[in-house]
Amino acid sequence: MSGHHPDSKSMFDSYIKVASALFVLTVLTWVAALDWVPKSWGEAGNTLHIAIGLLIAIVKAYMVFYVFMHLKFDNKFIRAFVFVPIFLFFVLTFALNVLGP
C-alpha cells in the first residue's frame, strides 16, 4: 500500500544486511574514539575524532532512513520531511556558533 516495496524476501535480506552494517559501524565508532591519535597532532587530532564519529553516525542514519524507514521505496516527496529540518539544523547551529563578540 505504501509505494513499491520489493518482495519480502529481498526486504528481509536488506534488513539483515543493514542491521549487521549498523553493528559493525557501531564497533567502528568505538574503535575510532579510542586514543590512537598522537598527542602531537593537538587540535587537529581532536577535530579528526569528531569528524570520524559524526561521519559514521551520518552513514548509520542514512541507512536507517533509507532502509528501515523505507525512504528508498516510498514516495519521493517524503524525503523533504527529512532534508528540510536538516537544512534548518545547519542554519541554526551556524548562527549559534558565531554567538558572542
Binding site: 586514543d35 564519529g53 559524526l54 559514521i56
Partner: peptide, 19 residues
C-alpha cells in the same frame, strides 16, 4: 526507528568524540 536514530547521534556526541 527515529528513536533509534536519535540515539545513533547521541552516542558519539555525548560519549565518544571527546578524546
Amino acid at each position: 526507528h527515529f528513536v533509534d536514530l536519535v540515539w545513533i547521534f547521541l552516542f558519539p556526541v555525548l560519549y565518544l568524540i571527546f578524546p
